[in-house]
Computed example of a mutant assay.
Amino acid sequence: MSPPPPDGAAAVDAETLLADAPAGHKRELRLWLRMLACANLIEGEVRRRLRLSFGTTLPRFDLLAQLERAGPAGLTLGEVSRRMMVSNGNVTGIAARLVAEGLVARRANPADRRAGTLSLTPRGRREFARQSAAHEEWIAELLAGLTSADQAALHRLLGRAKGGARSAIGGEPA
């Protein structure tokens, strides 16, 4: 393993390290590393901007987004955790803090006291609207290097890649 870069030096991602790899390295590996590098760069910047602009985290933003999509009916903790692809424990802690801040309401389910429903409060809807507008601008800025045609082609190709991956692991195509 190589030593860490000196202070002030740019961090090197796995894709960059593999750029000059011998021809024996598979094209698929380089592609996967490029996709990871892009996702990590964008996600890291979104996390940074959410923290600086709103004092919040990406998981909190994601939970608010799931509740916004669900509408007034809301979602159970289990539904939120499935949609966010995280454990119930992670969602429980985040939801409790959002409830305490008045952004999310929790209603008991009379049929099953263990299955409470979460929904956005009016304040939560307003706050999420502010955050999501900024988020949309940030994503547009971060992808501004691609033309509309490039974005459409990349979206189509990534959809095919997602379908192929699902098929390979025994799931349904995208």
Rank of each mutant, 00 (worst) to 15 (best):
N109T: 07
E136A: 09
A115K: 12
E79C: 09
R106W: 06
I169S: 10
E141K: 03
R49P: 02
R51N: 10
R130H: 12
V46P: 01
A134V: 11
L146T: 03
A14S: 12
N88G: 08
P72H: 09
A95K: 12
A14F: 00
G102I: 04
N88K: 13
R34K: 14
A161Y: 13
E45Q: 12
F61Y: 15
E15H: 14
A111S: 13
N40Y: 06
A11T: 10
R166H: 12
D20A: 09
L118P: 00
A9Y: 15
G8A: 04
L142E: 03
N90G: 00
A9F: 15
L143H: 11
L67E: 01
G163K: 06
L67T: 04
L18G: 01
G89T: 14
W138H: 05
G163I: 09
A129R: 13
N109W: 05
L120R: 08
A129T: 10
G164R: 11
S81A: 13
V99F: 05
A134F: 11
F54A: 03
T147P: 03
T147R: 07
A21Y: 06
L67F: 02
P173W: 11
L41C: 05
V12D: 02
R113P: 15
P59S: 09
L31W: 03
Q151T: 08
R106K: 13
S132A: 07
W32H: 11
L75N: 03
H155T: 13
A95R: 14
T92C: 04
L154Y: 12
A14T: 09
L103P: 00
R107A: 05
M85Q: 15
Q131S: 03
S119V: 03
N90C: 04
T117P: 01
L67M: 09
P122T: 04
A168Q: 10
A21P: 02
L29N: 08
L18D: 01
I94L: 12
R34E: 12
L33E: 11
V80H: 01
P4G: 08
A134M: 12
T117S: 07
P6A: 10
S167H: 09
N40R: 15
A134T: 10
R166I: 02
L29P: 00
A100M: 06
T117N: 04
G145N: 10
